[in-house]
Every structure is written in structure tokens, then in C-alpha cells.
Amino acid sequence: MENTITAQDIIRDGELVFKKTACLTDNVLSYCPGCGHGVAHRILMEVIDEMGIQSQTIGVSPVGCSVLAYDFMNIDMQGAAHGRAPAVATGIKRVFPNKFVFTYQGDGDLAAIGTAETIHACNRGENIVIIFINNGIYGMTGGQMAPTTLPNMKSSTTPYGRDVKMMGHPIKMTEIVATLPGTCFVTRQAVHTPAAVNRSKKAIRKAFENQKLNKGLSFIEIVSNCNSGWKMTPVKSNKWMEENMFPYYPLGDIKDL
């Protein structure tokens, strides 16, 4: 078709206002439409691109929805077993102290099965960055209760809502790691609005700058949605997140040394 408009017809010098960073691959994201993972991936890779550290960065992906993060992040990466990313990152950072090392983990990975690895990497003050995506549910396995699932929140293993008398209260890992001397920067952010995205990106930038200065462990929680697991539309899930997740997991810096 002669009349077909191609990307080259639209993108002309001087008219380009946004370009995907070269630190992301061209692979189609495996995340559900409306999920926050894609935005979190983008701003993380933009920071690595903008700091010019692609050739010095090693990422560690978790088990969970972002198990395939290495398909989308155009950097050297290691896939860790469930919950073990902070230990894997420790192993890497200790033999490559001058390289940049980060983990990217979900709430089940970081706050349930990997609690010990998380706490002790933070306590040792490993000079790494931990990105913690908290959407209050196990997304990949089909929406089971996570350690961060809110009280009375429904999941496939709490079909009548999380009963805190039976299952305990949702764990606030970010507040816990902020108490440890090994962490230098602990913050809770979101990626559901342009302003929130900008604040998250600034936090990620600060975390990597901290690593450059050997300041200790920077821990960034990103409260995000899981519209599939929460059984909501993307728009409704973001509203529900603001009304229910943010009061329990308030946004902002908890520690900044």
C-alpha cells in the first residue's frame, strides 16, 4: 500500500520528543496491559542509559511476574532463584565492587520467601540497589495472597478476604529495612501518574548515585497495581491502589542519609 504511513514518515529530525532507551530490548513485554512493571522497567533502564553505565551494570531478576526481566532489559543479567536475588547480588558485588549491581523483585519474592536474604543484604550494607515492586499479590501464579496483601483483600487463596487473625498483617518491609544501619536510602514510590513516575525515576537515579559513592544499600519500594490479579480494569485498579494501598503503604522517603 503506497499510502501506508511508516514510522519514518512521522519521526523527522526535530520532531522526535520521546525515544525508547537503548537499554531496553525490542522484545514485547510479557506483562498484562495496565500493569506498572513496564513503566518501572523503562525508568530503571533510562537511569542506566542516562548515567552511561550500561557496560558496568549487572542486574538480578527474581521469580515472579518479572522473572523474564532479562528479556526486556538490555544489560547483562542473572536470573536468581525465588527470593535469593539479594544473595546473588551480594555474590556479584563482592567480586566486582566497582560495577553497578541491582535486584528487581516482587513482594512474594522479597518479603516472603526471600525475607532472610533481604534483611541480611540490607544489614550488611551491601553496596547495591534493590527495586521492590509491591502490588500486594502473587501475579504470575494466578493471584494468591502475598505477604503484602491488605487486610480483608481477596485473593485466590483468601477468597473471603485476608483474615489477619489467621494470616497476620501485611508486612512493611520498607519500614523494617529502614531501621537497619546498612541502608542509606529507603523510599516508597509509585508509577501510576506522570508525576509519580518522575519521582520514582529521581529516586532510582539517587540510588545508583549512592552506589557510585559506596554509601550502602538503597532500597526503593514501588507500590504498583495488579489489575489482572485484583480483577479490575487498569483505571479502576489505580484508583483502588490510591484509596487502599497508599494509606497502608504511604509514599515518600523514609530514610535518606
Binding site: 532463584a81 544473595a87 547480588a89 555474590g91 532472610a116 536474604e117
Partner: peptide, 16 residues
């Protein structure tokens, strides 16, 4: 902090 952590540290460094 555990044998679990130590062997996963080995994984990370061996991967380098």
C-alpha cells in the same frame, strides 16, 4: 546468613 544465602552468593560470583 545461611547455607542458602552462601550458595546463592556462589551462583552470583560464578556467573561473573
Amino acid at each position: 546468613e545461611s547455607e542458602i544465602a552462601s550458595i546463592h552468593m556462589v551462583y552470583g560470583a560464578a556467573g561473573c
